[in-house]
Amino acid sequence: MQLVVTGATGFIGSRLIDHALSRGHRVMALARNPDRVKPRENSRFRVAKWSLGDPLPAMTQASAILHLAAHIPADFGDAHEAARCFEVNTNGALQLAMHAASQGVKRFVFFGSGQVYAPTSESASETSAAFPVHRASYYLASKLAAEICLLSFGTANAMPVTVLRLASVYGPGMHGAGMVPTFIRALGSGRSVVIRDGGRYRVDLVYVDDVVSLALAAIEKEQAGIFNAGSGQACRSLEAAQTIAEALGAARDLVNVEGARTDGAALGFAELSVAKAVEQLGYNPRSFRQGIEAWKAETGLADFRSGSGQE
C-alpha cells in the first residue's frame, strides 16, 4: 500500500515509517522541514515538504493517510493557546481529510489521546464519557473535536476514518521529558529518583511498537471507528521506577518514596480498555515490564542505561 504519514519527524511517526517499510508498504513522509526527517535508503520511501493547511502533494492511489502532526502548546494551561490548538488540531485535521478525499485517498487514521476520558476508577472504554476539563483542556478538547469532525466527514464522504486514542507512549526515540525517560536517565547514571504521593500516581503506559502495529492493522484489516491504544493496564509510578531499576541492574534503594504508601485513591489516569482492539484488530499489547525489556534488547544495556536514542 501507499501510506502517507504526517508528523514524520516525531517519535511515533518515525517509528511508524520504519515499521510500514518493513512490511513492504510504500511511504510518503510529510514534514515542514524535510531535512529533519531521518534518511532511509529505501526506494519505497520519499519525503515531501508540507505544513497543515497546505494542499497535499500529488499522490497516486494513496491507500491511507496517518495523521500525527499536531500543535502541542508549551503551556497546557494557557487559554491563549486554545485558538491555535483548534486551528491546527481540529480545523487543520478536517482540512487535511477534505484534501485527501478530493485526491481519492481511501482511508484516514487519526492519532488522538486516551486522556480525553472523564476521570474514572474503572477502565475507560471507547464508549466511556469523554470530558477533558481536568488537565490540558484546550489541547485535549481540540483533539476530541477533531475526532468528531473527522468521523462525521468520513461518514458523509465514504472515506473510512479510524481514531486511535493513545495512552502514554514510550520506547526507543522518545523525547526526554516524561516519567519513563526521566527514570531511565537517573537510575542509569546511579542517581536516585523520588516517587511522590506515596507512589499512587498511575497511568497506562504503552510501548510505541504496539501503537504502530495497531495503526497498521487498522489499515490492513480495513477497520474504521474509535479504538483505544493502550496496554490495558494501569502502571503506578513506583512500579514503573522499580521495573526500570531491575532492567538496569540498579540498586532498589535508589527508588525513594515520599508520602504515605496507603491504599488511598489513585492519582493520574485509569487504564484504557483494549478489548475492542483485541477483538477486531488482533491487538496484543505488551505489559510495561515486557516493553522495557524490549527497549533494552533493541538498544543494548549500555545504550539503554545512558538513554541512547532519546531525542
Rank of each mutant, 00 (worst) to 15 (best):
G53A: 05
F183Q: 12
E239D: 15
F183I: 12
F11L: 05
F11K: 10
T127R: 09
L151Y: 04
S137D: 05
F86S: 06
N228W: 02
I17V: 15
P34W: 09
A48I: 09
G114F: 03
R84M: 11
A64K: 06
G259A: 00
A124C: 09
V169F: 05
A167L: 08
P34H: 10
R191D: 13
T243Y: 11
C235I: 15
S231K: 05
S121H: 12
A93I: 09
L52R: 12
M179E: 07
I292N: 03
Y207R: 08
S152F: 01
E239S: 09
V193G: 04
A234G: 13
E222T: 11
A186L: 08
D78G: 10
A141D: 09
G176K: 04
C149R: 13
R15E: 08
L267E: 13
S142M: 01
A217K: 08
R185W: 01
G176W: 00
S63A: 14
N91D: 15
D263N: 15
R185K: 14
L238Y: 13
S102P: 00
G7Q: 11
H99F: 15
A251W: 01
C149W: 06
S43G: 12
Q223F: 00
S113V: 07
A224H: 05
R36T: 02
V37A: 07
F227Q: 00
I72Q: 01
S231V: 06
V211Q: 02
E271R: 12
N228H: 02
M28E: 02
M174K: 02
